[in-house]
């Protein structure tokens, strides 16, 4: 499983295929504002990126997917705990 719930955060581990979007969204909708640790993730599918863009969780640390880190690092800046969806 590439999406994992830990006590204080959600961890994306390894490549995150399209199905992970649903798991990730479900976890974030259940607990808005929970940080997502994407430092160990691999290639993110667009659907997963879309969930991060839409639900804007805090994203501490650099993204493990170099493409996303290079081009979509701004996702991290917009995500603040207050930015979580209500």
């Amino acid at each position: 499983m590439s999406v994992r719930r830990e006590p204080d955060r959600i961890v994306l581990d390894g490549a995150c295929p399209v199905e992970d979007a649903e798991t990730l969204a479900a976890l974030l909708l259940a607990e808005p504002g929970l940080p997502v640790d994407w430092t160990a993730c691999g290639r993110l599918h667009t659907a997963v990126v879309q969930v991060l863009l839409r639900l804007a969780p805090p994203l501490p640390g650099p993204c493990g997917d170099p493409f996303v880190a290079r081009w979509l690092g701004s996702l991290a800046k917009q995500g603040t705990p207050d930015g979580a969806v209500d």
Partner: peptide
């Protein structure tokens, strides 16, 4: 640049797989 194509609807699991980018 990656942006929502339409304003995001209210968050709902049902449209997680609808691409709006």
């Amino acid at each position: 640049d990656l942006a929502p194509a339409e304003p995001w609807p209210a968050p709902d699991l049902a449209d997680v797989f609808a691409c709006n980018l």
